[in-house]
Simulated scan of single mutants.
Amino acid sequence: MTESLPAVSRTAVGVAALRAYESSRPDRLFDDPYAAAFFEAGRSALPDLDRGSKQAGLGALMYPQVVIRTRFFDDYLLGAGCAQVVLLAAGLDARAFRLAWPPGTRLFELDLPDVLAFKDDVLAARGATPACERIVVRADLREDWATALREAGFDPAVPTAWLAEGLLIYLTYEEASRLLTTVGELSAPGSRVSFEHRPGDAPDSLVSRARATEDGEHVTALWRGGLRDTAPEWLAAHGWEPSTVTRAELATAYGRPSDGDATAGGFVTAVR
Rank of each mutant, 00 (worst) to 15 (best):
K119C: 04
K119Y: 05
D121P: 00
D121I: 03
A124L: 08
R126N: 12
P130N: 01
C132R: 03
E133D: 05
I135W: 03
V136M: 04
R138D: 13
A139W: 09
A139K: 10
A139E: 05
D140E: 10
D140S: 07
L141W: 11
R142C: 02
R142Y: 02
W145P: 08
W145N: 05
A148F: 05
A152G: 07
G153L: 04
D155L: 07
P156D: 00
V158Y: 05
P159I: 07
A161C: 04
A161M: 12
W162V: 02
E165N: 03
L167M: 04
L167H: 02
L168R: 04
Y170K: 00
Y170N: 06
T172W: 03
Y173V: 13
E174N: 03
E175W: 11
E175V: 09
S177D: 06
R178C: 03
L179E: 01
L180G: 06
T182N: 09
V183H: 11
V193E: 00
S194C: 15
F195M: 15
F195E: 09
H197L: 06
R198W: 12
R198G: 11
R198K: 08
G200Q: 09
D201N: 14
S205C: 03
S205H: 07
S205V: 03
A210W: 08
R211W: 05
R211A: 03
D215F: 00
E217W: 11
E217N: 01
E217H: 14
E217S: 15
V219C: 09
T220N: 01
W223Y: 10
W223G: 08
R224C: 13
R224S: 10
G225H: 11
R228C: 10
R228Q: 10
D229H: 11
T230Y: 04
A231D: 05
A231Q: 10
